[in-house]
């Protein structure tokens, strides 16, 4: 079983539209994992019907029992996150600032503070329109730890793939280079970088590839909206060449991406033209490369 992770560094380059197309092309051979738990969108194209839904707990939150609290201020003194608020000498916890380190509870002389496990979101196992399985999640509002929820989604997808004898897990990652991205890269067999020929696209590609290179992972790149800037397009190709990244394809700037999305379809279901053929070709190249 191979794991294909699609990331982009920069947001809005077409990562999810392309990943969902691969999910449709892969059909019964793939299990899909939407690891962009922060702003998940793949469900809009693949129409998952949940078979199983579970709460996800990660990290803790300090809670002060006001009946016991003597307002000594020790919790306030040790908290490095400014999460203890004091109003009219009532000590309380700012839920958004608390990082659940538990230090306050350890130093409270009257044991007025307890740590409660935090529900940070839900995750689902669903059937999608190809008949295959998708694992996806929704992080709670402002929740922390998307790295751990990402790991959960990915591991569940892998377990299902192993159990059902599927050849591939295809992962839609999140933008950036922080914890959720690190989490989605862990254990990847191949990384697909989706970029666009803008100076931001190139800048972000270089940063995220630095991370991919740290993990010593094999990567390929799809340049979306390839024709909006020929100069930057060439710079991207030079970069790919230098770093030994497989150039998978150039996709044109095409508003059919949006039109397909508006219909709740992937581009390979919606159109029959050049774009569709190129994405089919890209999927073949990826399968040959890994």
């Amino acid at each position: 079983m191979k794991e294909i992770v699609v990331i982009s560094g920069k947001g809005g380059t077409g990562k999810t539209s392309i990943t969902a197309s691969f999910a449709v092309l892969g059909g019964q051979d793939v299990v899909v994992a939407d690891c962009d738990v922060d702003a998940a969108d793949m469900h809009l194209l693949l129409q998952p019907e949940p078979i199983k839904t579970e709460d996800f707990y990660s990290g803790e939150l300090a809670v002060i029992n006001q009946d016991i609290c003597t307002q000594c201020g020790k919790c306030f003194d040790v908290c490095r996150f400014d999460a203890i608020t004091v109003t009219d000498s009532i000590h309380d916890v700012d839920e958004l600032s608390c990082e659940g380190c538990g230090y306050c509870a350890r130093v409270c002389p009257v044991e007025a503070i307890t740590n409660i496990p935090l529900n940070v979101g839900k995750w689902h196992i669903s059937k999608i329109k190809t008949g295959s399985t998708m694992v996806h999640a929704k992080l709670g509002i402002g929740a922390d730890n998307s790295g751990k929820l990402v790991a959960k989604v990915k591991n569940e997808a892998k377990l299902i793939a192993e159990k059902e004898g599927k050849d591939y897990v295809i992962v839609d990652g999140s933008p950036g280079v922080g914890c959720p991205v690190v989490s989605s890269l862990t254990g990847a067999s191949f990384v697909v970088l989706v970029t666009e020929p803008s100076i931001s696209g190139l800048h972000d590609l270089k940063r995220v590839y630095e991370l991919v290179a740290k993990f010593k992972l094999k990567a390929g790149c799809i340049i979306n909206k390839a024709d909006i800037n020929t100069k930057v397009n060439l710079q991207i190709k030079e970069f790919l060449e230098e770093e030994g990244i497989v150039h998978i394809a150039d996709l044109p700037y095409d508003e059919n991406f949006t039109k397909a999305m508006t219909k709740g379809q992937t581009i390979v279901e919606y159109s029959d033209g050049y774009l569709k053929r190129t994405i089919i070709e890209s999927w073949k190249i990826i399968l040959q490369t890994i």
Binding site: A143, D144, S174
Partner: peptide, 14 residues
């Protein structure tokens, strides 16, 4: 601000 709705966004907007 960063994209998304999780902790970095909260920090940047709160």
């Amino acid at each position: 601000s960063p994209p998304g709705t999780s902790c970095p966004v909260i920090e940047a907007t709160k």
